[in-house]
Simulated assay, not measured.
Amino acid sequence: MTQRVVVGGALCHEGRLLAARRSAPPEVAGRWELPGGKAEPGESVPEALVRELREELGVETEPLERIPGEWPVRPGLVLHVWTARLVSGEPLPLEDHDELRWLGPDELDSVDWLDQDRPAVAEAGRRLRGGA
């Protein structure tokens, strides 16, 4: 079975990481994730990240580097996370989310992350603390 990639954006700005609260589907509503979405056929993962963050948040971003690892979302779907820099715009919860929060490295445990996002969030937090 071919696996499709879901790309999550560890969007960092001024030393903080953007968290997005899901509004749907019901089984994950109210939990937090790194915003992003599925890569389309023929689209590179960094291209998908830029498109998804534009669609979901209304911002322009620049993908920086992939956080090592991949995490299963559901059968046939695997999460890759890239760090990204905010280029322009102010993130708004346009699709699939009802709240956004900028979290500093010491605030990352203050929200209930989706299980598959936790390892990448932890790594993004380490990078925030290290100034990367």
Rank of each mutant, 00 (worst) to 15 (best):
T2F: 11
Q3A: 12
L11N: 05
L11C: 09
C12Q: 07
L17F: 01
L18W: 05
L18E: 02
L18T: 04
A19G: 15
A19W: 07
P25Q: 01
P26E: 00
P26T: 00
V28K: 07
A29D: 05
G30M: 05
L34A: 11
L34K: 03
P35G: 13
G36M: 09
G37D: 14
G37Y: 13
E40S: 14
E40A: 15
P41K: 07
G42L: 04
S44R: 12
S44D: 10
E47I: 03
E47A: 15
E47W: 09
A48V: 02
L49H: 04
V50K: 09
L53V: 10
E55N: 00
E55H: 07
L57Y: 08
L57G: 04
T61V: 15
T61L: 06
E62A: 12
E65Q: 09
E65C: 11
R66M: 03
I67M: 09
E70C: 15
E70D: 10
E70H: 13
W71G: 02
P72Q: 12
V73R: 05
G76Q: 12
L79M: 10
L79Y: 10
H80V: 00
H80T: 01
V81H: 06
A84S: 07
R85I: 04
L86K: 06
V87N: 03
S88D: 02
S88G: 05
G89F: 11
P91S: 08
L92Y: 04
L94Y: 08
L94V: 10
L94I: 06
L94Q: 05
E95T: 06
E95Y: 15
D96R: 15
D98S: 03
E99F: 02
R101W: 06
R101D: 02
L103H: 00
G104A: 15
P105E: 07
D106A: 01
D106E: 10
E107M: 00
L108H: 12
L108D: 08
D109M: 05
D109R: 07
V111G: 09
V111Y: 01
V111T: 08
W113T: 10
W113K: 12
Q116W: 15
Q116Y: 15
D117Y: 14
R118Q: 08
R118H: 00
R118G: 03
P119I: 08
V121A: 12
V121N: 09
E123H: 03
G125Y: 04
R126C: 06
R127S: 08
R127A: 10
R127L: 14
R127V: 02
L128E: 07
R129A: 06
